[in-house]
Structure formats: structure tokens, C-alpha cells
């Protein structure tokens, strides 16, 4: 398209000076991406836990409804969910900034995944722990809060860490609802200058560096936290 005419006109393939000039903007984008990821993960961790507990509690109808929620959110693309929320929320009088909408959508999307992670963690807690809590007639809040969750969360933390990294990369989708994260900047720079190679490469490098470092960190966590049963 435009790029090929540029290359045909004798434009350089890689322009170092141009690339260098982009770095401050791209770092700004990276910072937004990281903020979105952390805020989205906070929502996902809380909502996912609530969903997992409700599903586990086997309340008729409500538990099934939440089961369907998990299945539906996991079975549909994040991008469409983002568009849907972006269009729907203002119709109900909720006018939020793209950034906030994006964080909420990302958080809700990943809550379906974290709910499944928590569920697996809770299922891993030996039945004897539940029985012991019942035998001591501990109230349900204390059974969850003091017995089950501490054990479940420990084994599940590295998996949640992996989802955090996944979410970091997935947040790029939100540029479509005009959130100015890393890919949002790439898109703007590219359509303004008709040069995509430099911004895309810098963005890819930043994604790669952050996710490689964080996955080393998750591996470390895994070694420290996961008990071999």
C-alpha cells in the first residue's frame, strides 16, 4: 500500500533516527499498557474469586448462571466484547473514558479465566480439609477464608502470573476502542508517517522484554510456592 510506494521511491528500509525519535512516545504507551494490565488484573482477581465461590457454593440457578457466564466470556473474542461495552455502556447513561471501559472489559474477560483457575485450585485442596472444618463446625466464612483459600491461592499463584502476562499482550486489542496504549501509538504513528516498521518493531521489542522478564519471575514464584503433594 503506502509503504510499498515509499520503498519503491527509494525510502530507507529501517530509519534509525526516526526509530530513536519514537522511543519516548512508545515508552509512554508501554506505561499505559502496564497500568491497564495491572488495573484489569485487579478486577479479574476479585471478580473471578467471587464467581468461583458462587459456582462452588452450588446455589441453584445462580451457580448455573455464573457457569454460563464463564463459558460465554471464554467462548467469545475480547475485541467484540470491547466494542460491545464501548457502544452499550453510553446507551445506559454510563459514559466512561475509553481507558476505563478498556480496563473493565479486560478485567471482566479475564475474570472468566481466573474463576477457572481458582476453581482448579479449590478442587486441589484435599477433601479432608473441608471435612475437618465441618467437624470443627467452623462457620463457612472461616472455612473459606482461613482453610481453603490460603491453600488454594498458594498453588494457583504462578498460573495467575501467566495470565497476567497473557493479559499484558492482549491489552493491545483495546487500541480498537481508541485507548492510547502501545499499539494505539503504533497505529497513530503509522497512519501519520506511513512508516509502520519502526514503531511495530519497537513495540514488539518492548512486549518481548517485559514478558520474558515476567515469565522468569513467574517461574521463580512457581519454584517457591508450589508444594509437591
Amino acid at each position: 500500500m503506502m509503504g510499498s510506494t515509499l520503498a519503491a521511491a527509494g525510502g530507507q528500509t529501517w530509519d534509525s533516527a526516526f526509530a530513536k525519535s519514537l522511543i519516548p512516545t512508545m515508552l509512554e504507551g508501554l506505561w499505559t499498557t502496564i497500568q491497564i494490565t495491572l488495573a484489569g488484573m485487579a478486577i479479574a482477581l476479585v471478580v473471578g474469586l467471587v464467581v468461583a465461590i458462587i459456582r462452588r457454593s452450588k446455589i441453584p440457578v445462580i451457580s448455573q448462571l455464573f457457569g454460563f457466564y464463564v463459558q460465554f466470556v471464554r467462548g467469545t473474542p475480547l475485541l467484540i466484547q470491547a466494542y460491545f461495552a464501548y457502544i452499550l455502556l453510553p446507551d445506559y447513561g454510563l459514559t466512561l473514558s475509553p481507558l476505563v471501559t478498556g480496563i473493565i472489559v479486560l478485567g471482566i474477560n479475564y475474570s472468566a479465566y481466573t474463576a477457572e483457575v481458582y476453581r482448579a485450585g479449590v478442587e486441589d485442596v484435599p477433601v479432608g480439609q473441608w471435612e475437618a472444618a465441618t467437624a470443627l463446625s467452623l462457620p463457612i466464612q472461616r472455612t473459606w477464608g482461613r482453610i481453603v483459600l490460603p491453600q488454594a491461592l498458594r498453588s494457583v499463584t504462578p498460573v495467575l502470573g501467566n495470565y497476567l502476562i497473557q493479559m499484558f499482550k492482549d491489552s493491545a486489542v483495546l487500541f480498537a476502542i481508541s485507548v492510547y496504549e502501545l499499539m494505539g501509538h503504533v497505529d497513530t504513528i503509522g497512519s501519520d508517517t506511513y512508516r509502520y516498521l519502526e514503531p511495530v518493531t519497537i513495540a514488539a521489542a518492548l512486549y518481548l522484554i517485559v514478558s520474558l522478564i515476567s515469565s522468569q519471575f513467574v517461574r521463580l514464584l512457581e519454584r517457591r510456592l508450589v508444594l509437591s503433594r
Partner: peptide, 19 residues
């Protein structure tokens, strides 16, 4: 380790700079 969006952009918008 990189975002799929960045990969799509690379293959469609950046490759033309290599012709």
C-alpha cells in the same frame, strides 16, 4: 512474547517497507 496485534501489523503494514 509479543502481542498478536503487533504481529498482524508487522505482516501487513511493515513488510511493504521491505517491498
Amino acid at each position: 512474547g509479543t502481542s498478536l496485534v503487533a504481529q498482524l501489523f508487522f505482516f501487513f503494514y511493515a513488510l511493504p517497507q521491505f517491498g
